Simulated assay, not measured.
Amino acid sequence: MTTQCSTTTTPARFLLLGDSHAGCVGRAAQAAELPFVGGPLGSGRDFLDPFFDTDGTFRQTEPQRLYREHLDTLDVTALAGLPVPLVCTFGLSAHTVATRQNWDLYRDRRGTVPDTFLQSRLFADLVRATVRGALAFYDHAVALGLRVLAPLPPQRVPGRSDPNVFFAAQNILVDELTARSVELVDLRARVTDGTGLQRPAFCQADDTIHGSLAFGRLVVSELLDRGL
């Protein structure tokens, strides 16, 4: 479900696009009466393989419909005309990349994916290939001269995902976005415990992957600190 704020009386401060992890950011911005446009366009898996063409079209019908609605609200016809920063979570669902069965081929006799593999060029290449659609979208947005900010997702690893792969893949995603001059909103030091996982106060209680409103508020606070 998309979270959208009307900008009929107050100019929007940013465009929010992403997967379901954008939801708590949108809810927190609404609660703070911070004007923005946008919200989730789909699930995390929708934005890993190529999903967006450089002519400005999402390949799936529903994301395209929502995207066009958001641009219309901002009174622009294309991303190139965006008058505000873009806040985006595409490709950052590391728990999806870390789905256990995807990495069974690389496990040792103990059933563990070895650190030597997680630190290898092959692993990095596989992660980049998995999220190539998202990386292409960031390449496109940055090439247009947009200011792009990417909030890292909640540090939550569901049972179907491998924690070691999650953290290793996320590090690669961080490096890739940093190399593209995307501004990372990284709250890990503020919301995790000694294991690196999200503390309960910042977890949505009724599922295993999403952040709570409190987490969204921290993201919004960071966005405000950065001038949005």
Rank of each mutant, 00 (worst) to 15 (best):
2 T>F: 00
4 Q>P: 01
7 T>H: 10
8 T>F: 11
9 T>Y: 14
9 T>N: 14
17 L>V: 09
18 G>R: 14
19 D>Y: 11
20 S>N: 03
22 A>N: 08
22 A>S: 13
23 G>P: 00
23 G>L: 09
25 V>M: 08
27 R>K: 09
28 A>W: 01
30 Q>V: 12
30 Q>K: 14
31 A>L: 06
32 A>R: 13
34 L>A: 02
34 L>M: 15
34 L>F: 10
35 P>V: 09
39 G>N: 05
40 P>K: 13
49 D>V: 04
52 F>Y: 15
52 F>K: 01
53 D>K: 14
54 T>E: 15
55 D>E: 12
64 Q>C: 00
65 R>Y: 04
65 R>A: 12
66 L>I: 07
67 Y>K: 02
68 R>G: 00
70 H>N: 12
71 L>G: 06
77 T>F: 06
81 G>Q: 14
85 P>S: 03
87 V>D: 02
97 V>P: 00
97 V>N: 01
99 T>P: 05
101 Q>P: 00
103 W>G: 10
112 T>Q: 14
116 T>F: 10
120 S>L: 10
120 S>M: 11
121 R>T: 08
122 L>M: 14
122 L>D: 12
126 L>F: 04
129 A>S: 14
135 L>G: 02
140 H>D: 09
146 L>W: 06
147 R>P: 00
149 L>A: 09
155 Q>L: 06
155 Q>K: 07
156 R>E: 07
158 P>V: 05
159 G>P: 12
159 G>T: 09
160 R>E: 15
167 F>A: 06
169 A>C: 13
171 N>F: 01
172 I>W: 00
172 I>N: 08
173 L>A: 01
177 L>W: 10
178 T>R: 15
180 R>P: 07
180 R>V: 02
181 S>K: 15
184 L>C: 07
189 A>W: 00
190 R>P: 03
190 R>G: 01
192 T>F: 08
192 T>P: 05
193 D>P: 11
195 T>S: 15
195 T>M: 05
198 Q>K: 03
200 P>H: 05
204 Q>G: 03
208 T>P: 01
210 H>G: 02
211 G>Y: 03
215 F>G: 01
217 R>P: 01
219 V>P: 10
220 V>T: 11
221 S>F: 04
221 S>N: 12
